[in-house]
Simulated scan of single mutants.
Amino acid sequence: MSDQIRSMCKSLRLAYVSEIYDSIPFESPSQFLEALFKEEFRLREKAKVQRLIKNARFLDSKSLSNYEWTERIRFPTQIDKDGLMSLDFIKLKQNVVLIGAPGTGKSHLATGLGRKACELGYEVRFYRVSTLIEQLEQALKQDKLPSFRKKFEKVELIILDEMGYLPFSKEGSELLFQLIADWYEQKSLIITSNLEFSQWNRIFIDSRLTAALVDRLIHHAHVLTFNGGSYRLSNALSRAR
């Protein structure tokens, strides 16, 4: 392909035509152009999904395709497995809360749902709650809190992993509450926790703040309970045997 044509592709923002045109079979001019542009669109969509997944900052590559659904997951009456996997809760700006003991598959499911959301074109962010608190406190110290909160304007799904594994300072609790209050009825959250709501006072210290936070989270939420012991522990024991 000539430099002139390559330059024109760049001006027209055809990112892939110059790379793929010679691999497209030619049967007729119209067939060639249709196949060429279809491949351009396909590669654009693939690149977009990769960008969304990168921006989400998942901690691993787990997905729904290798998630093990078991009867130990208790669904609320208003949603089932198919309803959850449809991700309609994001359109409705509803929350999903996954509660259960460590190692029962909560983070895997949260990551899988987040990755699927990226594949469907949603802006997603994944945070360990302790990491988010650290970043909020750092932003406050550097007088950058407004710009930090602004980063979430276009985000449609936020995953907060491991709520309750570490207690927060009073300042950290208040900062997280303010952020979740901003997101209330504006975005969808997926939260994983090893503690039932009645035990969240352990991590948030202030009982009134805890009550206000839980009220916002569960107002439009699907709460799934994970029963039984740790998958990781049982797998490790079976390997040891």
Results as ranks from 00 to 15, higher is better:
91 K>P: 02
182 D>G: 02
117 A>D: 01
56 A>N: 01
186 Q>A: 06
67 Y>R: 06
152 F>E: 06
87 L>T: 11
210 T>E: 08
101 A>P: 00
158 I>H: 06
240 A>H: 14
239 R>K: 15
202 R>I: 09
232 R>T: 02
35 A>M: 06
110 A>Y: 07
108 H>M: 12
202 R>P: 00
194 N>K: 08
131 T>S: 04
12 L>D: 09
172 G>A: 06
208 R>G: 05
217 L>P: 07
128 R>A: 12
118 C>P: 01
224 L>I: 02
84 L>A: 04
129 V>N: 07
23 S>R: 14
9 C>E: 10
122 Y>S: 06
144 K>H: 09
74 R>Q: 15
208 R>Q: 13
113 L>D: 05
32 F>Q: 00
223 V>G: 07
21 Y>N: 03
147 S>A: 15
114 G>M: 00
42 R>D: 15
6 R>K: 09
185 E>W: 06
58 F>A: 00
78 Q>T: 12
201 N>Y: 05
220 H>K: 13
91 K>E: 11
140 L>M: 15
47 A>Q: 13
90 I>Y: 04
52 L>F: 09
161 D>L: 13
131 T>L: 02
41 F>N: 15
41 F>C: 12
115 R>E: 00
147 S>T: 14
86 S>W: 02
234 S>T: 09
53 I>S: 03
207 S>L: 14
206 D>P: 10
161 D>M: 05
48 K>G: 11
62 K>R: 15
58 F>I: 00
88 D>S: 15
142 Q>C: 05
118 C>F: 02
175 L>A: 13
139 A>L: 13
13 R>Y: 09
215 D>N: 07
154 K>H: 12
164 G>K: 08
167 P>C: 07
165 Y>V: 08
168 F>T: 04
54 K>E: 14
109 L>A: 04
143 D>T: 12
200 W>S: 04
102 P>M: 03
233 L>T: 02
190 I>C: 01
13 R>M: 07
68 E>K: 14
30 S>A: 13
79 I>K: 01
70 T>K: 15
122 Y>A: 04
224 L>D: 03
194 N>Y: 03
74 R>E: 15
99 I>A: 04
46 K>T: 08
